[in-house]
């Protein structure tokens, strides 16, 4: 049973790590490119918004599977 909790913790933890690194890079590049070309700020924000959707897909599904493991499989 403990292995289920370890698996859920790994899923959530590694997903959060990946999302954190990705969002850090995305936010950093958004700031950098907005500073270079301020007139494109709104377009860059829209592109960052689209990329955020790609970026958080895997952690979101991971959260769902981890909750299933914790509350249904182990519960």
């Amino acid at each position: 049973m403990e292995m289920v909790f370890i698996a859920a913790a790994l899923i959530i933890g590694l997903g959060a790590l990946g999302a954190g690194i990705g969002f850090g890079l995305l936010g950093g590049k958004l700031l950098e490119s907005t500073a270079r070309q301020p007139e494109l700020g709104n377009q860059l924000q829209t592109k960052a918004f689209i990329m955020a959707g790609l970026l958080d897909a895997v952690p979101m599904i991971g959260v769902g599977i981890a909750m299933y493991l914790i509350f249904v499989v182990a519960g």
């Binding site: 936010g27 958004l30 907005t34 301020p38 007139e39 700020g41 958080d56 959260v63 769902g64």
Partner: peptide, 28 residues
């Protein structure tokens, strides 16, 4: 929005993502 508020946009993006993941976990 806009270049003058870029730091607020990025800060809000990080907070929104955190709350989004937390809300998803709570709903599940």
């Amino acid at each position: 929005e806009g270049a003058q508020n870029a730091h607020l946009v990025v800060g809000n993006m990080f907070r929104a993502e955190t709350v989004k993941l937390a809300l998803t976990a709570v709903f599940f």
